[in-house]
Nucleic acid binder design. Structure first.
Lengths: 130, 130
DNA sequence: GTTATTAGTTGTAGGGTGCAAGCAAATGAT
DNA sequence: ATCATTTGCTTGCACCCTACAACTAATAAC
């Protein structure tokens, strides 16, 4: 089981953390850092540093939260979407190469199971975006 | 997809790396460090450090390779097996908790797919134990 | 208005990882 | 046999990810 993880990590060299942040932002609209950290199952401080890095690269932007001066709302930029799309494309290519011998049915089944497992694990520990 | 990985990493706090080494050793008998590194898709140097740590904890032992004085052959100790078994039990408990609502068929199917994917990824990059 | 709580950042420390340099044993060329 | 090369492994170094603790700024509670 851990094998899959290790091999995927080895195959996906590019920015492991950044992509998680961008992915979450891409499908959730303006969010606070704390919510993001929660969704990623990471510490707020860690998430804060990632966001700062992405901000420097202009893949993410922050705006003051109109309802709370302490908080900031994050959103992905157009460049961020592009970057994410490229990263996903690269990963997909690897997966497609690995699963070249699979038939359509098995692929969708695996996908389905993984999504379900991710949801169940999220429920187990209570991490989700609000 | 990365979600599963992140959440599993969060749920399995204990010794991420050590367990990989022990697992490989448990199912492969005496191996060289280089072969182990290859199987784990890790750098030899990284693997070397892990082995040293496990050796200190007496979970792994090394003996000189009779056929090559430079190499060492690693094997898991009884304590190592016990440690691994405990770790696997802990992980299994988490997974069972997460998949409490799954029926038997789906579980075995997921297992099957993951094993297949791991194999295919290994083939893609050529990492296996000899 | 003073105190407590909350959102985020920064300091610090610990691990994992890979690359490059080094060391010792083995192999190959002469 | 001798010396150069290759091979297996370890160590030095630098970088990233991560969490916890201490801190600042802003809000909420009283």
């Amino acid at each position: 089981m851990g094998r899959v993880g290790r091999q995927l990590r080895a195959a996906f060299k590019s920015d492991p953390a950044a992509i998680g942040v961008l992915y979450q932002l891409s499908r959730s609209g303006p969010v606070r850092i704390s919510a993001l950290a929660n969704a990623l199952a990471l510490d707020v401080s860690t998430t804060s540093r990632h966001v700062r890095g992405l901000e420097t690269d202009e893949l993410v932007e922050r705006q003051a939260d109109p309802e709370d001066g302490r908080a900031t709302l994050l959103h992905i930029t157009e460049a961020g979407r592009q970057f994410l799309a490229d990263a996903i494309a690269e990963r997909s290519a690897v997966l497609r190469a690995a699963t070249a011998g699979w038939d359509e049915h098995d692929l969708t089944a695996l996908n389905h199971y993984l999504a379900r497992l991710a949801d169940d694990l999220a429920n187990l520990t209570g991490e989700t975006l609000a």
